[in-house]
Design a binder for these strands. Structure first.
Lengths: 239, 239
DNA sequence: TAAATCGGTGCCATAATTTGGCACCGATTG
DNA sequence: CAATCGGTGCCAAATTATGGCACCGATTTA
């Protein structure tokens, strides 16, 4: 009996019996009491809610969870959810993000293949960096929620993006750039883009971007963005 | 890199790239060629259809197959997602959370009635406050991911919660309390609870809580928590 | 009150599995 | 022909999983 199939077996037995003792489970799956207890721990880590009761007549009970959801989510929505989880994880507290991940993984499994491809391409543009201690967060603006769909289109189709940018002095300019990455440096969020006119990468604080619009026309190419050492792709984050 | 997460990674990479060589995969997942070939075999055993082509320009290709149309999410997972969104929204930047909300709303619509009730009761316990500027975030610990299932059970069934708490001086005590709310004050997360022994509300920083356990027995009652003015229920947050 | 049951943890030696090289095969391409 | 590229067998080493044990605390039963 494999560790993975044993986990599956335990869930099945708990669903079937309603309540089982650790010893019963151990006998049924052909493993020791200790191993089953370890398995229970692992299953709980994976998000299964298993109640337990001590004493005679006690045992383990699996909360009848797993409600089927037939939600039809758009890539944008799933991406938005992923970004939220990424941001929370980036903020060092990492709380509960593994559970959220489990849910997202399930959602991802239900997306159509082409949607998954889109999602992956979007995630490849998502980077997360370290929190800087004692960050001054007094004058952070809010981020225009219209940015995400624009970013998404630009990332996926590699089309230029034009927007208004208000710099630190409050001066507004209009930029036309090639979006390469989204960078979360809590509490700040940046769009990292190649500026063809200036022949270099530029960081744009998202709370200073407004009125984004896609520029139809030729596609730009993806570039390798030179990030600092403490920045890592979302996909490779420690969990 | 775990064997299981490596399998997941390989599937993801294949979906993203379309075609990959074994050597590319090996480098990307940080394993040897031999191991990746074994993984490919295992994935094929699990039902994944992976085409292969020899020679120059060859490689592996994952057949874009069998997309399920339904996700199975537990209340815990949806709750975890919601909390992530709440945390991001609380961090003042509020970026894209409306899109994430839209996705969650769709999910919620497909949940069974009793699950929705549970979810609402959980959300009633979620509060969000203002970010304090120039917060010192240098000594924030990580939050035990085992907390969420415990909180959830405690909130839903109104059962007492016992845990170890390490105060600011590092002294550990064991507390038994009545959880009333989860409060997100970025970057800090708190459990707000009624302490019957001390006859008052107490805030517990989540990164200082460990070994949570439900105390079966009598249910406690919900109390009105006197929050500061700048704290608002998650459900009533501006979007 | 005592005994039995039951979940849970820490520890450690041992068993099992995984891993990375290595050599080598067959197919394909230029 | 040489260079790629998937695939297999084999083996020693590294990593994990496992079982057994002692022991704790809670709960039920006699």
């Amino acid at each position: 009996m494999n560790i993975r199939s044993r986990h599956d077996a335990i869930v099945r037995i708990l669903r079937r019996n309603g309540t089982s003792t650790v010893n019963d489970l151990a006998e049924e799956v052909g493993a020791s009491r200790r191993t089953v207890l370890r398995d229970i721990g692992a299953l709980r880590d994976q998000g299964f809610v298993i109640h337990s009761e001590s004493g005679r007549g006690g045992g383990l009970q699996l909360e009848p969870e797993s409600v089927q959801t037939t939600a039809r989510l758009s890539v944008t929505e799933v991406f938005a959810l992923l970004i939220s989880v990424a941001a929370v994880r980036a903020a060092r507290s990492l709380p509960f993000s593994d559970l959220a991940d489990a849910g997202l993984a399930k959602i991802e499994r239900t997306l159509a293949a082409d949607k998954v491809r889109d999602l992956r391409r979007l995630l490849d543009c998502l980077y997360v960096g370290q929190v800087s201690p004692k960050q001054d967060i007094s004058n952070i603006g809010s981020i225009d929620s219209g940015l995400l769909p624009a970013f998404e289109t630009s990332f996926l189709q590699r089309l230029h993006l034009r927007f208004r940018y208000r710099d630190a002095k409050g001066v507004e300019t209009i930029r036309k750039i090639e979006p390469q990455a989204m960078l979360i440096l809590p509490p700040l969020w940046y769009l990292v883009a190649w500026d063809a006119a200036r022949e270099g990468f530029r960081h744009f604080r998202m709370d200073r971007i407004s009125k984004p619009e896609i520029v139809e026309g030729t596609q730009f190419r993806r570039r390798h963005v030179p990030f600092e050492d403490d920045v890592c792709p979302f996909n490779e984050m420690p969990r």
